[in-house]
Amino acid sequence: MVPITRRRVLGATGAVIAGAAAAALSEGFLPIGGRARADEQPDPLRLRRWVMVFDLQRCDGCVGLGLPPQCTQTCTWSRFVPEGQQWLEVFESELNELPDAGIQFLPALCMQCQNAPCTNVCPVAATFHTPEGVVLIDQERCIGCRLCMAACPYDRRFFNWDEPVQPPQVKSSPYNVQTQTPAIKGTVMKCDFCTDRAEAGGLPFCVEGCPRDAIYYGDIEEDIATNGSEVVQLSRLLNENEAFRYKEELGTKPRVYYMQGHGEKALPKTKTEHERTFMKDRLEWPWERIVAELEKLGAEKPA
């Protein structure tokens, strides 16, 4: 039996309205192949399926270190994220409604939804799934309608309302869809899952930037993941910790998992519970300063 998926329904509707049949099914983003078993050699021809896991027992929003969230900060610095955008944003949320339940820190980036509301609605396929299942945006094609932003249930898409300020080297580099550089005015941006880093054998910047080793990056296909310090079997990590996906009930099928917790394993702690302050408002976007400095240097040189 053919399962009814939203994509199918969508495809059918589109076909009826436009009179073009089966356009929806030609996109072929769905993950290929089944799960590799532990005793099997991974098939080199198989596509990677990147996932990320946040260990919320370890994440304390970098409060204990007295720093702004370092994942966000590293991402921003390394990815040249335009001012004001937090591709990876750490939220402070009430753990539950019980008295003294405390705060949980919830880092959220683009969930790389497999049934992605954003790619479904894009009129020009500017936002799309790579064969590996990562959602990317082609800023050279995006028309800036912002329907994808309205559709994203995690508010993980950002718009360049103004001409984005970035260092001149970035601005003048040829456009790269994987790294979204240079940023283009009037188009949408978001976390791109650092696929360029993964392809080169590295880890995403946010994973490397986390001082608590709370972020794992891995591949479901090979059933492996790492937080930079240890390598684990992904499925076991997820199963044993009863990992969940944020807003699972929406059916977006994210590739980002969370292990429930509230920073209890975030060690060493340098501050007591009572001194907790979340320093999200101290995040830095140094681009304007860098550009100004460079201009000053440029003006001084000929003299």
């Binding site: 076909a15 479904n120 009129p123 500017a126 028309i143 800036g144 309608c145």
Partner: peptide, 26 residues
Amino acid sequence: DLGRPDRMLNVIRYGRFQSPILWDLF
């Protein structure tokens, strides 16, 4: 309302029938 009105014609060049915007256009 478009961020890139200069690329308006992309809707015709790369139009996807699965997008509500295309339904509206038609």
